[in-house]
């Protein structure tokens, strides 16, 4: 019995399984296991007092109920969505415009486009500190410029006011995200055959018309990928917020990621922290499905 099974396993048809096996095992151990473990953790009541206990009390969905009644969690969920949408819109539009601009092939377009990538390459903690200085109330350069230009008369406390702190973080993230959008769209633009534009201009189409009739439709797959990947990158923001405001002032800039970290590792409410992380996971999963569908359509 055993023998025949073994023989069958090595039949040519099944060799494919062997090739997939390493990747599958890797995913199972390093991705599957943590997810399952985290879901179990979120269904238990694990705190300082029960972390090392053999039997951890089962809490059912209580942690999820609790976090949805927690104003800070709701605030961080709203913040995360608001942050993601604002960043995505701004960095996409600016990135797109820059891509079109650098697609004009003027004499220094290539080196300048290369330089534009710098924000993307700087470590995020460095960027965060830099923006923290820019947005400083008394010593920040932004207030200095605005005051010198006579736009404001009193210094604005950008990062220490609950109204403007999120705006500051969005600015920093847009600055980081622009090159990412620009470079992907630039690459997309080069795949559009020049002949199309040539024949369009012969037919008398204007700049605006060619943009909406040729550029946009042909860029659709690229745009979809850029937006969805951008969404995922932006949605799980952590280091930027952690360094710039740490979620403050008065919890006004907490994101799901930073709040989850705070619950788990600063306040030792491990189960609640993992429940927040799972909410983050579910939202990203939904976006992931869209991404796969988009790429599948493209392949077909």
């Amino acid at each position: 019995m055993n023998q025949t099974k073994k023989k069958k396993l090595f039949k040519y048809d099944n060799v494919g399984i062997l090739f997939v096996l390493p990747a599958f095992l890797y995913m199972l151990v390093f991705v599957g296991y943590p997810i399952v473990k985290n879901i179990i953790l979120s269904l238990q009541d694990v705190t300082v007092r029960t972390l090392t206990a053999d039997h951890k009390p089962f809490a059912g969905l209580q942690n999820y109920i609790d976090i949805f009644q927690d104003p800070v969690f709701v605030k961080s969920l709203v913040n995360t969505l608001l942050f993601t949408v604002c960043c995505l819109v701004l960095q996409f539009i600016i990135g797109f415009l820059l891509a079109l601009f650098f697609n004009q092939h003027f004499s220094v377009s290539k080196p300048v486009r290369g330089l534009m990538l710098i924000p993307w390459m700087i470590p995020i903690t460095v960027t965060a500190l830099m923006f923290k200085f820019i947005f400083g109330t008394d010593v920040g350069i932004l207030n200095y410029i605005l005051t010198s230009l006579g736009i404001i008369s009193e210094n604005i406390d950008w990062l220490t006011s609950t109204n403007t702190a999120l705006f500051g973080i969005i600015c920093a993230n847009v600055w980081i995200g622009i090159p990412f959008n620009m470079i992907l769209i630039s690459t997309g633009l080069t795949t559009i055959p020049k002949e199309l534009y040539e024949s369009a201009s012969i037919d008398g189409a204007g700049k605006v018309q060619t943009f909406f009739k040729i550029t946009l439709p042909l860029l659709r797959p690229t745009i979809e990928s850029v937006l969805i990947l951008g969404f995922i990158y932006t949605f799980k923001v952590f280091d930027l917020v952690y360094v710039m405001t740490g979620g403050g002032p008065v919890n006004s800039t907490h994101m799901l990621s930073t709040y989850s970290y705070k619950l788990s590792f600063e306040m030792f409410k491990y189960s609640k922290g993992s429940a927040v992380a799972n909410v983050l996971l579910v939202i990203l999963m939904i976006v992931g499905v869209f991404y796969l569908r988009a790429t599948k359509e493209e392949e077909e």
Binding site: M27, F30, V31, P34, I35, I232, Y233, K236, F238, D239, L280, L281, L284, M285, I286, V287, G288, V289, Y291, L292, R293
Partner: peptide, 18 residues
């Protein structure tokens, strides 16, 4: 399978930063 893949993908991306 596609849902599973989506899960893997999103976690993979999450793990990217981790």
């Amino acid at each position: 399978v596609s849902v599973f893949m989506a899960a893997m993908l999103s976690v993979g991306l999450l793990a990217g930063c981790g």
